Simulated assay, not measured.
Amino acid sequence: MNQFRHITISGEPVERGKQHGKQLSVEISRTIDFYRSIFALPESEILHRAELFRDIIERFNPTYIEEIDGIAQGAGVDPLWIIALNARTEILSHCAGVSNECTSVYYSGSAILGQNWDWGKALESLSVLMKIVQTDGHIIFMLTEPGIIGKIGMNSSGLGVCLNILTLGRLLDGLPVHIFLRAILDCHSLAQVDSLLASHGGGKASNIMVADAGGDGFNIEFCGENSYRLVAESDYLLHTNHYLDRPINSEKDPSFSSSYARLNKATQILSENKERSVAGMRALLSDDSDRSWPIYREYIPDDSVHELGTICTIVMELAQQKMHVRKGKGPDAKFFEYHLDG
Rank of each mutant, 00 (worst) to 15 (best):
M1E: 11
M1W: 02
H6W: 05
T8F: 01
R16Q: 14
R16M: 10
G17C: 10
K18T: 03
Q23M: 13
Q23F: 03
S25H: 02
E27S: 06
E27N: 11
I28W: 00
S29W: 00
T31G: 01
I38C: 03
L41K: 14
P42C: 14
E43Q: 05
E43A: 06
S44G: 11
E45M: 02
H48W: 10
A50W: 02
L52P: 09
L52Q: 15
F53Q: 10
I57A: 13
P62W: 12
Y64G: 00
Y64N: 14
E66A: 11
E66S: 14
E66H: 07
G70H: 04
A72V: 04
Q73L: 11
G74F: 08
G76K: 02
G76V: 03
I82C: 08
L85C: 05
N86M: 10
T89K: 02
E90M: 03
S99D: 13
S99C: 11
S110Q: 12
A111L: 07
A111Y: 12
W117F: 12
D118H: 10
D118A: 13
V128A: 12
V128K: 09
M130K: 03
V133E: 13
D136Q: 08
G137M: 10
H138V: 10
M142V: 09
L143H: 15
T144G: 14
E145S: 06
I148F: 13
K151Q: 15
I152W: 01
I152T: 13
N155W: 02
S156M: 07
L159D: 00
G160D: 14
V161T: 01
L168I: 10
D173S: 14
P176I: 02
V177F: 01
I179W: 03
L181P: 00
R182G: 01
I184L: 09
I184S: 00
V193G: 10
S195N: 12
L197A: 15
L197W: 14
S199F: 07
H200A: 12
K204N: 06
A205G: 07
I208Y: 13
G214M: 02
D216A: 08
G217P: 01
F218T: 03
I220T: 13
E221I: 05
C223K: 05
G224Q: 04
G224N: 04
G224A: 07
E225C: 06
S227T: 07
Y228P: 05
R229N: 08
L230Y: 04
V231E: 14
A232N: 12
E233N: 07
S234Q: 08
D235H: 09
L237A: 12
L237R: 01
L238Q: 04
Y243D: 01
R246G: 00
P247S: 12
I248D: 11
N249C: 04
E251N: 02
P254H: 12
P254Y: 13
F256Y: 11
A266W: 01
E275I: 03
M281W: 07
L284R: 07
S289M: 04
S289F: 02
D290V: 02
D290K: 05
W293Q: 15
R297N: 15
P301G: 06
D302R: 04
H306W: 13
H306S: 11
E307I: 01
E307Q: 08
I314M: 09
M316C: 15
L318P: 00
K322P: 03
K327V: 09
G328P: 05
K329F: 01
P331T: 06
E337M: 06
E337N: 13
Y338C: 06
Y338E: 14
